[in-house]
């Protein structure tokens, strides 16, 4: 009797082991809207291809008052967010968590960070520089950028899919979301994590090596 039960049981266990071990390597999803386009293939014939959302070209002033563009993040993966230096609500928590990631990947030049200020009135490059120094992340790997209200708010909502609003009724003048957006080397969105939630930040930490290894192949 005992034997009769244990045989199907062990078969079942073996099946589970087989199924789980057959799972392919983990891959991060590609987020954002996508379109199907007809493209010309190298051999001249035409076919359809999925076109994913990518971050468009941008040009902002960084903490050293130097203009930076997408080129700065060529062949890098990066984490983008939107904040302002005088924010005392979610930003310190977001940057505390982001700094933890920063410390972990300090020696990996392939991982970068891009924080956009949404306080176009006060957060000039020199203010951003001071902030970066005080946060202890001023080594160039973490870029802090300043742009016109239009350019920053537009790229936030249209491209990184993060809501930011200037609102005079809010205590500090702005309403914004605390997403940390993970961008791959093809400028596609591969993840968005609530920077104030330790669980989601832990997930981001786990996802970074997955994304890095994907590009190795």
């Amino acid at each position: 009797m005992k034997l009769q039960i244990s045989i199907p049981l062990s078969l079942f266990a073996a099946a589970i082991v087989l199924i789980t071990s057959c799972q392919g390597e983990k891959k991060l999803p590609i987020l954002g809207p996508r379109t199907v386009e007809t493209v010309k293939k190298p051999d001249g014939s035409s076919g359809v291809d999925t076109v994913y959302k990518t971050i468009p070209n941008f040009s902002f002033l960084n903490q050293d008052s130097v203009t930076i563009t997408n080129d700065k993040f060529r062949d890098k993966i990066y984490i983008a967010d939107f904040f302002f230096t005088s924010c005392t609500t979610i930003c310190p928590t977001m940057h505390r968590n982001m700094k933890e990631i920063f410390e972990k990947y300090k020696d990996n030049p392939e991982v970068m960070y891009l924080s956009h200020t949404i306080d176009f009135k006060y957060d000039t490059p020199s203010v951003l520089k001071k902030y970066a120094q005080k946060l202890g992340v001023d080594n160039g790997q973490w870029q802090f950028v300043y742009g016109s209200k239009d350019s920053v708010y537009k790229i936030a909502e249209k491209d990184y899919l993060v809501a930011v609003i200037e609102d005079s009724t809010a205590k500090e003048g702005y309403i914004h979301q605390g997403w940390l957006v993970l961008i791959d080397k093809q400028k596609r969105i591969r993840g968005a994590y609530d920077g104030t939630d330790t669980k989601q930040v832990a997930q981001l930490m786990k996802d970074i090596p997955v994304l890095l290894s994907e590009d190795k192949k």
Binding site: T88, I90, P92, T93
Partner: peptide, 16 residues
């Protein structure tokens, strides 16, 4: 307070 001063009262860089 925790946003800036941290869950363990550790502060944040030399900002807080």
């Amino acid at each position: 307070c925790q946003n800036c001063h941290g869950a363990k009262g550790e502060g944040l860089g030399t900002l807080t």
